[in-house]
Simulated assay, not measured.
Amino acid sequence: MAIINTSILGKISGKLGNTVIYERNGKTIIKSLPAKSSKPPTAKQLYHRAAFKRGQQFLVPIRTELELGFAKRNAGQSQGFGRALSVLLKTGILNENGIPVLYPEKVKVSEGDVLGIDGAEAQWVGDNVLEITWYPNAFMGHGKEADRLFVVAYDPENGRKWAITQGNYRKSGSQQIQFPWSSDLRGRFYVYVSFFSESYGRRQFSDSVCLGRV
């Protein structure tokens, strides 16, 4: 693979023979395609392909939120969605008799070193209003009262999501979420929560936790 910082090829992109040319982050990438194998895929390869496809299908509707919660810290690290998918494949999809089974409760929407949420619960307080409560634990470890809540409520069956990307402060202990839909909500949404701190426009997150399907 070759990387050209200043493109001599203009805006050319696409496939040329056994070579793919595309642009990423202002750089032109020239990459050779892998040679096709004449051997039939092994059972392990078929499993990994199926797991990868299953993970992608589940995560695509919340891609925007994953790009935020898994934002790369340093140049060269994985982009958000790719990192989120990698974590899901390792911890959220299990091999059960050769079949990849995805457990939504094990999905992560953020990761990081910020102090995580403690004692969080979610309950409906209205037809389309969900309240999340937690224990204000800023005095523990390196948590701060000014850390803010990050919430992703996701209904995978219908592809619906509702996110709070700048929620209440850790010290408040609660957050109400009003959904834009008025019916068929209860028992549909997996709720993922975490905290983030922000400094000079850059966010650092805690590992998210799932509050179950509410």
Rank of each mutant, 00 (worst) to 15 (best):
M1K: 07
M1L: 04
I3H: 02
I3R: 11
I3N: 03
I4F: 03
I4R: 01
T6V: 13
I8C: 02
L9H: 13
G10S: 08
I12A: 08
K15T: 09
L16D: 02
G17F: 10
G17T: 12
N18W: 01
Y22S: 11
E23A: 14
E23D: 09
G26A: 06
T28I: 09
T28V: 12
L33K: 15
P34G: 13
A35G: 15
A35H: 03
S37Y: 05
P40T: 08
P40A: 06
T42N: 05
K44V: 13
L46Y: 04
A51H: 02
R54N: 08
G55C: 11
Q56L: 09
Q56V: 14
Q57M: 11
F58G: 09
L59Q: 09
P61S: 03
I62A: 01
I62P: 00
R63E: 09
L66Y: 07
L68F: 06
L68G: 12
G69S: 08
F70Q: 01
F70V: 11
F70L: 06
A71I: 04
K72V: 00
R73F: 02
N74H: 09
N74Q: 07
Q77G: 05
Q79N: 13
G80D: 02
R83M: 14
A84R: 02
S86R: 13
S86L: 12
L88T: 15
L89I: 11
K90G: 03
T91Q: 03
G92M: 06
G92P: 04
N95Y: 05
N95G: 13
N97K: 14
I99K: 08
P100I: 08
P100C: 06
K106A: 10
V109P: 00
S110E: 04
E111K: 08
G112T: 04
G112C: 04
G116C: 04
I117G: 01
A120Q: 08
E121P: 00
A122H: 02
Q123F: 07
Q123C: 14
W124N: 08
V125T: 12
L130G: 07
E131N: 11
I132R: 00
P136C: 07
N137I: 14
N137S: 13
G141S: 12
G141D: 11
H142S: 14
G143I: 04
F150C: 03
A153T: 12
Y154R: 11
K161P: 02
K161E: 03
A163N: 14
I164R: 06
Q166H: 14
G167H: 06
K171D: 07
G173Q: 05
G173M: 06
Q175L: 13
I177F: 04
Q178P: 01
F179M: 14
F179I: 15
P180N: 03
S182Y: 05
D184N: 14
R186C: 07
F189A: 07
S194P: 07
S197V: 12
S199H: 10
R203Y: 04
Q204N: 11
Q204P: 00
Q204K: 11
F205Q: 02
S206R: 06
D207F: 07
S208K: 02
S208F: 03
V209L: 05
C210L: 04
C210D: 03
L211W: 01
R213C: 14
V214I: 09
